[in-house]
Each structure stands twice: as C-alpha cells, then as structure tokens.
C-alpha cells in the first residue's frame, strides 16, 4: 500500500510500486483529466505536478513519488486558474486531449517564470505535443494568463 498526497488529500493506493503514476491516477483513482498519449515521456499528455514541478506521470513510478501531486483536477478549486480562464478565452482546445497536459506544463512555467517571452514559452511548451495544431493559441493563452494573473 502506497500513500500519496494528491490534490491536497492523502490517498492510499494498492498498486505495485513500479506502476506508473499515470495509471494510478486514471484507473485506480478515476482522475482521468490526466491523459495517456505515449507512455514514454515524448508527448506530455500525462503532465502533472510533483511539488509544483511538471513531470511525466507515465514515467514516474508511483513508489518513487515523494512530494505532493497536483493534477488538472486540483490545479484550481473551480476550474478557474488564470490559465484555464485564458484557455477558454482564447478558445485553445480542439480535440482537447492534450490540453490538460499543456495547462499543467504552462502552470509550472508561469510559477517559475511569471512573464515568459514567446521563445521561452515555445521552448518549454515544446515538450508537449498537440496534433490539432493549437500551438499558437497556446502561446497566446499563456501570455494572457501571465498578464492577467
């Protein structure tokens, strides 16, 4: 039994310690906002925070998690994080599947760098793939959130 702290709550999980955090979040706990895209840290759809740092939950063994985990469900209380408001205002999502990971990546970026330049946004966000091609709107939304936060 592994005990995790997820979105501010202590959670006991009966999973093999080697199990990727992604499957624990999604299938054991039903936190399906975090997505599976590649299982290899290549697409970023599974991005969550551990102690505020963006990590690939598909590559993070649940037994290795020592800090507080934050998922898209816990990013804000009512889904109104400045980035989420900006994402809606800029109408970023198309299929939407990558967007939880994009928002979590952007949230970690803004926490570390509240006013990133466009090239800094592009460099950081290039860890996350979007097949619908929403990248330019993501840049706008991150810039908007930085301004309005």
């Amino acid at each position: 039994m592994t005990t995790l702290r997820i979105n501010g709550e202590a959670v006991a999980v009966a999973a093999d310690p080697a199990t990727p955090l992604l499957w624990v979040l999604r299938e054991h706990l039903g936190l399906t906002g975090t997505k599976f895209g590649c299982g290899a840290g290549l697409c970023g759809a599974c991005t969550v925070h551990v102690d505020g740092e963006a990590v690939f939950s598909c590559l993070t063994a649940v037994g290795d998690v020592e800090g507080d985990v934050t998922t898209i469900e816990g990013l804000s209380r009512d889904g109104d994080h400045p980035l989420q408001r900006a994402w809606i205002a800029e109408e970023v999502p198309q299929c939407g599947y990558c967007q939880s990971g994009q928002i979590m990546r952007a949230a970690a970026l803004l926490a570390a760098n509240p006013n990133p330049r466009r090239d800094e946004i592009a460099a950081e966000m290039s860890q996350n793939l979007c097949r619908c091609g929403t990248y330019n709107r993501i840049f706008k939304a991150v810039a908007r959130a930085a301004k309005e936060a």
Binding site: G30, T32, G33
Partner: peptide
C-alpha cells in the same frame, strides 16, 4: 459564439472513450 466544449477541455472534465469506467 464560443465552442461549447472549451470549458470542459480546459478543466480536464471532458470524457473520451479511454476515460470511460
């Protein structure tokens, strides 16, 4: 007129088949 699905897709609450339980 805004897309109806933007809020759910910005909050992680949209349900795809891979999310069905």
């Amino acid at each position: 007129i805004p897309r109806r699905d933007a809020p759910a897709k910005s909050r992680g609450t949209e349900t795809y088949v891979i999310d069905v339980r």
